[in-house]
Design a protein around this nucleic acid. Sequence first.
RNA 1: GGAGAGGUCGCCUAGUGGCCUAGGGCGCCGCACUGGAAAUGCGGUAUGGGGCAACCCAUCGAGGGUUCAAAUCCCUCCCUCUCCGCCA
Length: 436
Amino acid sequence: MSIGLARLREEPDRIRQGAIDKGEDPTIVDQALVLEGKRRTLLGESDRLKAERNAASKKIGEAIRAGAAPNGPEVADLKRASTDAGTQIEKLDADLAATESALEELLLRIPNPADPDVPVGDASANKVVRTWGELLPREATTDGQAWTRRPHWDVAEALHMFDLERGAKITGSGWPVYTGPGSRLQRALIDFMLDVHTEEHGMTEIWPPAVVNSASARGTGQIPDKEDQMYVVPRDDLYLVPTAEVPVTNLHRDEIFEADQLPIRYAAYSPCFRREAGAAGKDTRGILRVHQFDKVEMVFFEKPEASTEALEWLTGRAEVILQRLGLAYRVLLMATGDLGFVQAKKYDLEVWAPGVERWLEVSSCSNFRDYQARRMAIRYRPEAGAKPELVHTLNGSGLALARTVAAILETYQQPDGNLAVPEALQPYMHTARVTP
RNA sequence: GGAGAGGUCGCCUAGUGGCCUAGGGCGCCGCACUGGAAAUGCGGUAUGGGGCAACCCAUCGAGGGUUCAAAUCCCUCCCUCUCCGCCA
């Protein structure tokens, strides 16, 4: 389940409105309420009968210990009472199981309501909350000489940094091979990002499995919601991760934290695999949309009262990376219609790519509030001895590599065709310039 | 992959069909004793669900089965450890 039953009963109106704002069917909320009522009725009746059966069994035990024959007439009535209750319980429980699975089905279709400060509407209601850096034009002038910034695939080809054709030969279209300085750049970016997040931002580094089981895929909602987007290994019931969010969030599935353990903040590198089903023909050139890319992901577990502030901080940590790399970007507050099913609030970071003259999404920072935590039963104890409560989970890219690489190539290309290495990466690249 | 041993409450452990409503120890919390503490004693200490409440139901790795009754017996699966094989 995703929306909590208690919340469903307590504030159905807010949940209904949340569904409307996200363009989902609000009548599911009412259907769920009906089933929830039925569930409680059945459960009460079943529990009552189970108590009866337990009492009868206990009496049989006592009678036998007192000397009655186990198969004698003295216990026959008790056995019959117990068996009769058992028959009814079986029926009730079958009905209950059907009701619960129907209810769960409905709950999975009720979206997480957006935060009150999220603009309502479709993508056109997204708000640019800030822009950083200089937006370089494609048609440039350097030292009085006019020149044209090329798209990243041209820069990469000239400098032998990645090879899309050979990637297509060994795997398929959308599986880039990074070569020479391109490969080095991958390593440099991963190292740089992890260093900043761990050493300066205090996050704990995680190097997770790139493949997860179905329970983990279910935990973060990849199945059933986004099953089409994942590569599957059916023989072993395993899934290639589309983001480190999946393994890292599942680190603490079914766990209960003490209050002083929170917040827990991770930074994790992983390769990311996405089928991009339905995106055929989009962004076919270069590395803007590929089946395998690399990403450093931030995953936070927070106390509920801290999560609103944590999202701002998380987003800021992703911005730090772009600023250090000297890449111009903007921050978008996504409107309800552009939010996913599970996010309460989301900022997208888009980097400016002057060669293709486009904004490229390189990070998506979200607060899930307790929605994901409920699915995974990740809780904490507000104080010693108190009842566990759900934590809030957040995550955001910090950053996705392929598009960041594209922005670097297009931003830092020089009129002579060489590539200047951003200062922050020079210690990792061991050079200030990439030449053919 | 083969053989064996295991999986019980935060941790360790008892438990081989009914006095298990899961016992004991450690740890933790409260109280008593103390000038304060240690030691000691007493009590409490899982999760989910239902009920205004007393309380009830479920859960002993997971799922099924046998039985009036399963931590305990049977079946399937998962995981951990030891040895062997293979291997970066």
